[in-house]
Design a protein around this nucleic acid. Structure first.
Lengths: 151, 151
DNA sequence: ACAATAAAAGATATTTTTGTCTTTTATTAA
DNA sequence: TTAATAAAAGACAAAAATATCTTTTATTGT
């Protein structure tokens, strides 16, 4: 039987979200952070998060620059993204659109038994992930009271 | 990047839920259904669902009997179970308890940035999966209007 | 008793996800 | 213009999830 020690996001996506929030927080005072520092900050394998960051960078979710003094950061544009953007970039939009029971043909007309029950949950989920921009999260002083790693 | 074409449940668990509902429906008029028939009915690999059914049977979520006229079915006891029971049997309770971002130490005191936002969603999710017993689902005539496979 | 049926059990294979390591490319500062 | 730094890229490895196949065991009707 599957282990599935987590929730609704792939592990890759969990790392991505944690990294995005970490970078948001760090780039508050203009700091750029390297893959190593991020990996330490969010408890993830260095090379793995590096790969993920490549993808996020490609899609404009985070900014990056090479060389010394380089690293990952967020510009104004990037701060306009939401957590939903991060999720969609990594896991796609199936979380918001796919059938809970994995049926291809599930729809309003041919609903699976859980279709209508989960409509509200799905909507709420979308709302939560969409309502806050990373920039707003950045402005929130409480941010320092949240944890991204186990230490 | 991960594919993750579905939602919050493992594929194994999706099959399990679909099978449980299928058996509930079929055992309405005392019918027992074989693994093959179930696999056809819910669009799943035969041997794979057979394995899953073994587990569900072991935990009393479904009943089974061997030999000709044998197959899977639900007795009164089994009909008292909820979808949450099925989910927990297969995927464990991490869906209801684990941190959304996969942090081991996430708690009220050391919350991850999404902790409080997701509290409500998690609760609602638990409610939806817990509120209806399979037996009640069985009594619901609308059941015939729901789909469990692509055909 | 026997043949047929169906679940249980277990071995094995494939695919996907996750994680690691090495090389290349771009940028900076001295 | 060179050495150091850091991301980008790509090859490879390990682990987990999913899927298939074969053998065994229990049950039924004849």
């Amino acid at each position: 039987m599957p282990h599935n020690a987590t929730w609704m996001f792939s592990k890759t996506c969990e790392y991505a979200i944690r990294a995005a929030i970490f970078i948001t927080r760090e780039s508050r005072d203009g700091r750029r952070v390297g893959a190593k520092e991020i990996a330490d900050g969010i408890d993830s394998p260095v090379h793995f998060i590096a790969k993920i960051l490549q993808e996020l960078s490609k899609r404009g979710i985070v900014q990056s620059s090479k060389g010394p003094t380089g690293g990952f950061y967020m510009d104004a544009d990037a701060l306009g993204h939401t957590l939903a953007d991060v999720v969609i970039t990594i896991d796609g939009d199936s979380l918001f659109k796919g059938c809970v029971l994995g049926l291809d043909e599930c729809s309003e007309k041919k609903p699976c038994p859980m279709h209508f029950e989960f409509k509200r949950i799905r909507k709420e989920l979308h709302t939560v992930l969409n309502k806050t921009k990373l920039g707003e999260l950045q402005d929130n002083l409480d941010m320092s009271t949240f944890y991204l790693s186990r230490r």
